[in-house]
Design a protein around this nucleic acid. Sequence first.
DNA 1: TCAACGTTTTTTCTCGAGATTTTTAAACAA
DNA 2: TTGTTTAAAAATCTCGAGAAAAAACGTTGA
Lengths: 243, 243
Amino acid sequence: MPEHQLKALHSANAPSAEPKTLVESAYRSLRRDIIEGRLQPDEKLRVEHLKDRYGVGAGTLREALSLLVADALVASQGQRGFRVAPISLADFADITRTRIMLECEALRQAIALGDDAWEGDILAAFHRLSKAEEKLSGDEAREEWEERNRVFHEVLIAACPSRWTKHFLSILYHQAERYRRLSLYRNPIPRNLHEEHEALLKATLARDAEKATAIMAEHIGLTLKALQQLEPDVFAGNGGTQA
Amino acid sequence: MPEHQLKALHSANAPSAEPKTLVESAYRSLRRDIIEGRLQPDEKLRVEHLKDRYGVGAGTLREALSLLVADALVASQGQRGFRVAPISLADFADITRTRIMLECEALRQAIALGDDAWEGDILAAFHRLSKAEEKLSGDEAREEWEERNRVFHEVLIAACPSRWTKHFLSILYHQAERYRRLSLYRNPIPRNLHEEHEALLKATLARDAEKATAIMAEHIGLTLKALQQLEPDVFAGNGGTQA
DNA sequence: TCAACGTTTTTTCTCGAGATTTTTAAACAA
DNA sequence: TTGTTTAAAAATCTCGAGAAAAAACGTTGA
């Protein structure tokens, strides 16, 4: 029964199956609020307050928080409750480097092993992403763009046979999403995301692994560069020197 | 406060700090029982039975199980409870390959960045491991050897600055430990573990990154080869074709 | 003014009981 | 015998209340 393990490994990005339990429902709401910044980094998560906010019991919320520890979006300290995982530039640099290593390797394998159906899926995901890019001006559309961007990256490496690599990448992607929002808000470097994605698409379909991975590394690294050129006050109240 | 995040990321292998809550206590006992095979792969984990076995309440045990989902040692299915994560040869092959990629990269960085204290720690860990290897004949000593082997691998890459790489490696190490026990029980290939570790030590201290990573890849890969040469009935009742 | 101590308040952690859902088993018809 | 429907049984999921710990606060003393 491979389905179970896949679901377990990819619990972080289950396509969009309806949450069947209150725990899962609270888990998703919490994760969304953390990634989108409504629950700020390093903020204390008091169970008594949050159980009203999300309309569940204390035990249920506690269980949802335990699941978020898996994604490293929440940190639990011994007997002193839960906190939103802190952020720092050093941490994002680590996330970016690790993600580049894994995602380039996955892409290399996908290019070597992908079949026709895989190519088709990539084209479809790219098309949907392009459509979302056009109407990115409105703030509402960002939600949709973020989702389609995730799917595009996911489909690119779908032909990679390593479940573990993809599992780790999905964790890193969600981590990076927190930082990406900071970057987009301030908009320091005007990027032409469409061209980046198109170059990635063409190199991949041409089965040019060297070129594709180079573009991918550049593409992922640009968000880090953007954040590095930002004033450090974005990370208000962090530790700062972790990695 | 870097300590929190480190603890969160490395929750899977907290050095040996006393468990301060019942949840953590149950979490450790459960993880131990799963890794050592007392709770068999794919076995159903009924909360009502297990809460007696571990002497905690239902909610507490449920929370501990949620934490184990993080390590992918337990899989939770919608509204149908928890299960021990299944095992398969394909899964172990994936674990091994991914681990080789990450651990070699980490070792390369450690060799480039390690200082004198790091070298000293490696020597100390190697010495303790060697002592444990001598008395490995008895079954009791395996516990100690396994722990010192883990520390040796951990210290080797301690100088690698990437917390995320080390976090993922600690997950993979625990996963591999389940399979390693299967391999040791049957003992198909007589390995000279001491020589392997010594070669690894010498190449690392000589700062020969190419040689060290080559030895590391061979060292990690041997357990997979041993299991591949074993009859497939070791994985009784698995899916078998996942990766 | 500052530091240390003990009390009060808040928060976390833990447990058992009740409501839904899934699974199992039996009964019945074709 | 086989398949479907129904009912009983088991397990999961959820909640609120009580015990233990940590944080906050004010008081006391130098």
